[in-house]
Amino acid sequence: MSEAVAIQRPAVALPWRFVRLLPGIALLFAIGYAGKLAETLVKDYGKAHHLALPNIEYVLWAILIGLVISNTAGVAQIFRPGIATYDFWLKAGIVLLGARFLLGDVLKLGGVSLGLVVIEIGVAIAIMTVLGRWFKLKPKLTSLLAVGSSICGVSAIIAAKGAIEADDDDAAFAIAAILALGAFGLFAYPAIGHFLHMSEHAFGVWAGLAVDNTAEAAAAGAIYSDTAGKVAVLTKSTRNAMIGFVVLAYAVYWASKGQAKTVQGKAAFLWQKFPKFVLGFLFVSLLATFQTFDKAQIASLANLSRWAFLLTFAGVGLKTDFREIRRQGARPFVVGALAELTVTAVTLGLVLAAAAIFNL
């Protein structure tokens, strides 16, 4: 059966597969660019009329426009394949961002982040598991929410879904909940950061630790400042690199209960789950460390990374569907929200302590 499909595919399918992405990518670009224009327009209007308007970054505009479209008119089928590429733009953007980091900074910040990440993962899993039991959620949904909240939202949930053989419904809900909670965080975290007068580095580390979806972590950081966005991506990538270990632990746990396949070849499993874009990021950072690029070239690579993120942020809004949450009911969402709140508070404490010790 699969061979017949494979034989039919190549001649027609490949160009068509690219063509069907175009409407969605064009929509991502249009929304992202509208966000960029909105930021400039508000700024110019404030200047011209001597008004102290809040500086709303293009990131937030793009996400808001996307949110409004997806939760009101909805997204037409023709745009969906292209919108799904937002994850591709995110990863390409992260690799390009490597040009703005020297490897020494990556190791220093990555080292501090790694210590905090390990604590954050332990805390998030423990809280989610306890809350899941209290609220009597389905055990596999609790596992998905725990993986999503401890590591990296959507990709972690998808990775875990296959490994622990969870239902599609549970995974769709866990993804919707993580995205919706992250969207709320985009408004709350920068406000808290400003209230506590956090440094750009400290805020970036916090956003990278506390916001679950990589695109939203990058967005939360970028809303605070450019540097905070950069640091948030680095911290979040460190967290993402741990995905294999956590998913493997859950896979082994569910296999021991006879409810998932036993994992054969644990090293291969870890490599399969390892986010390869982290390697790309480190490679470009290595090139930058050896001064492969001049100033203008670094600026161009940084701008390419911004354009890629612009498409990503538009996609985040378009992919967040609050209606999915209504479908599963409020209880799992409340569990997710309670866990997120605790993780937010714990990571904030960790980051403030680390900022004092390591002078972030």
Binding site: F277, G280, V284, F293, Q297, L304, R306, W307
Partner: peptide, 30 residues
């Protein structure tokens, strides 16, 4: 041939852009 994952495609696309910026001085504004 084994299918490449999205991660690898993102790395390849980004590295292709890096090569363009480095070799033909592709200039990108914001």
């Amino acid at each position: 041939m084994k299918k490449l994952s999205l991660d690898w495609w993102a790395v390849i696309a980004a590295l292709a852009l890096v090569v363009l910026v480095k070799t033909v001085n592709l200039s990108v504004g914001w």
